[in-house]
């Protein structure tokens, strides 16, 4: 492949080396080229948060990220925050607290919550509300999502 269109970055802990033209959006690269479909496409315009991934450990909207700009960086998707066996504490809490209904926004929320709890292991309710305010959920009214995150944070 011509080096111009070659993109190398780390994805969920592994190096990847893919064909990627300039206008390719990270979400499209993940879902369509790399077939990692856990990251969801809800609006494509940064207005729902369903496509949230971690970029060097921080949440980012993959629908508004040019894939070429993750060159040499670390991308972590919902697949990457999931342990090989079982569930992460955030994921377990989401299941047990009923924080997932239709589930379509859930990967984005789990990624956002994972990043929040890494940066701030014991967030207050207000801090949780602020942190998830870029992820839209139409099913739960957020109540059980906040409860689940608070439970992991021990508050």
């Amino acid at each position: 492949m011509p080096s111009r269109d070659r993109l190398r970055f780390r994805l969920n802990g592994q190096p990847v080396d893919v064909f990627c033209p300039d206008p390719r959006i990270l979400l499209d690269l993940l879902r369509e080229d790399l077939r990692l479909t856990g990251t969801k496409r809800g609006c494509d315009l940064g207005t729902c948060g369903c496509c949230t991934v971690l970029l060097d450990g921080r949440p980012a909207l993959s629908c508004l990220t040019l894939a070429r700009l993750v060159e040499s960086r670390e991308v972590t998707t919902i697949e990457g925050v999931t342990p090989p066996q079982g569930l992460s504490p955030v994921q377990r809490a989401f299941v047990e607290h009923g924080a997932t209904q239709c589930g379509f926004c859930t990967p984005g929320f789990v990624v956002t919550a994972t990043a929040l709890l890494r940066a701030n292991p014991h967030p207050s309710r207000e801090e949780i509300e602020r942190a998830i305010a870029g992820n839209l959920c139409r099913c739960t009214g957020y109540t059980k999502i906040i409860e689940a995150i608070a439970a992991v944070g021990g508050r």
Binding site: K40, L87, T100, G103, F104, T106, P107
Partner: peptide, 20 residues
Amino acid sequence: RIPYVEGPLKVTGRAEYTDD
């Protein structure tokens, strides 16, 4: 209080929607 049976698939992105 019964957690959703497909909950583990949803929280890991493994639940399969049409576009997947």
